[in-house]
Design a protein around this nucleic acid. Sequence first.
RNA 1: CGGGGCGUGGCGCAGUCCGGUUAGCGCACCUGCUUUGGGAGCAGGGGGCCGCAGGUUCGAAUCCUGCCGCCCCGACCA
Length: 520
Amino acid sequence: MVFMLKRAVCHLLLAICFCQMLTANSRQKKKSMAKVITPRSEDYSKWYVDVVKHGSMAEHSSVRGCMVIKPHGFAIWEKMKGQLDKMFKDTGHVNAYFPLFIPKSFLSREAEHVEGFAKECAVVTHHRLMSDPNGKGLIVDPNAKLEEELVVRPTSETIIWDTYKTWINSYRDLPLLINQWANVVRWEMRTRLFLRTTEFLWQEGHTAHASREEAVEEAKLMQKIYAQFAEEWMAMPVIQGVKTANERFAGAEDTYTIEALMQDGKALQAGTSHFLGQNFAKAFDVKYLNQNNKEEYVWATSWGVSTRLVGGLIMSHSDDDGLVLPPKLAPTQVVIVPIPKPSPEIGEVAELIMRELKAKGVSVKYDTDPKKRPGFKFAEHELHGVPVRLGIGKRDLEKGQVEVARRDTKEKTSQPLKGIVCYVTDLLDEIQKNLFDRAVRFREERTTSVDNFDDFKAVLNEKGGFVSAHWDGTTETELKIKELTKATARCIPNDAVEEEGKCVLTGKPSKGRILFAKAY
RNA sequence: CGGGGCGUGGCGCAGUCCGGUUAGCGCACCUGCUUUGGGAGCAGGGGGCCGCAGGUUCGAAUCCUGCCGCCCCGACCA
């Protein structure tokens, strides 16, 4: 009896303590944790814009559809660019630069290519402005009309193949493996920060080869490189596959793609590599003399990834507290926050840690801003996606430890100062891996095989993600599916197995499954 | 191009329906003091042709007409 009473009292005490903790907690929350990010569950689009904004990635400019990439966002792009550029060069490519302007007539040389891009081109018609004779401001000088209008490049195949014509004469000039980093303009009707802007930054590789086989091999190689980059650096798992005829690049014989799945269950085409056959060689009359002194058209590829990848990066890992960046692409990998403010003692320890981390190639910052308090800094670095935060205060120094907070799981632990550098470098590796594994798990949960159209629709509506289904191989069916479900054929995966089946829509025979999804 | 929304100090908004002191509030900024282990408090201070152009009126951020711009949702696309 006494025992039971004791227990009851004990419970009561516990309950009271718990209550107090709760109130204290929620009071604190209400008072200090000003949430600036709309939760994903509430409004995914708004969440995305909030993360971009508060992560200091980019903002809308005063020009419709165009964004300003801010230093933090640009630093991430620069890291991506640096790694990709290295991978291109390691596989024998060199960089060059071709003009922003393309004569209008060039674009029409390759029939399908025009068809694909004509509707979204910005066109330069004049080369001079003048004061408005009727008042203030400037007008386009009607006397300064261009003889041939210039198109702002939506992609550079035409201007590049016009140039290659003069560069390629013999089989000795092949293969020609060139890449350019550039901006392009596509006048889209609807834009979204990073994912689809009127002007965007990208790289475009354009290669010329002596044989079909070699060109196909090149296109596939670049797909592999993109996939490797996405997975190892962005921690963004991708499906490698080939596009259906309908989704193919305008002017290509085959388009190889990497497709990623975003947290809202929509697919993102993250990079494409095209086997162009001899289409552009024929359109621009690019021939070479083979070893038998016979003229032949060259075989071509083109491949590109853009600042859209940054959007993919954000939507793969970030959460309701802001950006989450994979350590390999984070401009700052570790931040040290003095608690409550910088002091000589903390500074000494911070300098020591920084020196050792930098020696190991880790980018680290010591946040000495005296005007911001620790809590503010915590929130700010979380919004910016800094993978690891070290908190050092007087209590830590006394115990010879530091507080380690990881951004991906938001776990906080105290670690001994001794060996902290190894701990942190290991932790960065672990975070990189965890982000990738987490994204793979998410994609697996959101990839569903279906065998009839009712299930197909139900899966798309209820859980989204990739739907793996049989398809009869016709564009007609593909379009019908799109009309009925808004889902598009993302790709025929490279690792698809041969499997007899029936088309999910028409019931006609099919030899394998392909992936469908609603897409960005 | 259709549908919706918005335009007011650097940023975010209220005020507009129903016209009437000196156009408010929060954040940020400047000064000072007190603070500092999860977005500090107090006091004082600076900053506005209310998107543009006409009109109605004694009087317009507010009403009317026209224009411009941006965002969101769709159709087109990376």
